[in-house]
Design a protein around this nucleic acid. Sequence first.
DNA 1: GCGCGAATGTTGTCATTGACAACAATCTGC
DNA 2: GCAGATTGTTGTCAATGACAACATTCGCGC
Lengths: 158, 158
Amino acid sequence: MKYRQAAALKPRAGEYAVQPDKLHLGRLNSHLGYFLRRLQVLIFQDFITTLKAMKLRPAQYSVLLVIEANPGKSQALIGQSLGIERARLARLLHELERRKWIRRLRSDGRSYSLILTREGETALTKIKNLAEKHEARIAKKVGPKRRMQLMDLLRDFG
Amino acid sequence: MKYRQAAALKPRAGEYAVQPDKLHLGRLNSHLGYFLRRLQVLIFQDFITTLKAMKLRPAQYSVLLVIEANPGKSQALIGQSLGIERARLARLLHELERRKWIRRLRSDGRSYSLILTREGETALTKIKNLAEKHEARIAKKVGPKRRMQLMDLLRDFG
DNA sequence: GCGCGAATGTTGTCATTGACAACAATCTGC
DNA sequence: GCAGATTGTTGTCAATGACAACATTCGCGC
């Protein structure tokens, strides 16, 4: 009667247990969304811890990249491209402006032109280095081949 | 003055249709996590609206399925299998118990055995019907073939 | 020009979620 | 029996998503 195996090789407190996934998933096995989410959460956790040094969240990172690739565009365009709602993007940008990584120039009377500051550019190079390490770690964990296949499938979908 | 829609013809090789998404994603294009998240959010939105009639969120749904597939297991096991934290699962289960869809039987003195009630089973059949419709809609939107390829890749990993 | 509906950005609020910490009760291993 | 781990519970905090309301400004038809 000893079905109590996990106690043998337990990691330090705070770590996650070895492989406690023993239960059947049932119908969950036929849901693409479930597996997508599990992997996405895994990846984001790695990203967040990697970028914690720069106190940067994934959404902020994506905004910085899109501003870099499209200097001078409006908040509305950025938001639409990334699927970030107006209200949330406004607050997110205020934070980036407070850190002096971006500037918001009146272009329209009602809209702003978003650009990186010099400071933002240097920060972004450091950030990209960390993000690259993150992505390499993901490639290793997921498997480079599987990662490429997933990227192709998802990018094609758009 | 009219430097408006310079980006009107951006789709590389017959990519996505004409949408408000016209900005370049920059480095974001090399991040698997970004694409995973976009699709996952899309799918979850469909799931949530589909299951709104039953007032059921994705996490609750997954818990019900795993309880159904593994009757009598503890909260700890369920949580570990689904990646749901103890505290959050406790509250989630209280809600399911309040609705009389599950019962929690003392098994251990400190742990519970989770099972579906009769009522929970009938609710779950209705829920599964809705979830099936949701999944079919996803298959159509993503493309049945692409969906299968993604499922295979993701399931192999997990 | 004028006026009206749309677009843009801002602020406020609410519900959900994730992450932790602290805690009581209980179990396990020695 | 005891020390430490496990299990479930409650509390709190920050981040997020979703909406609504609002002021300002633009676009467009007339």
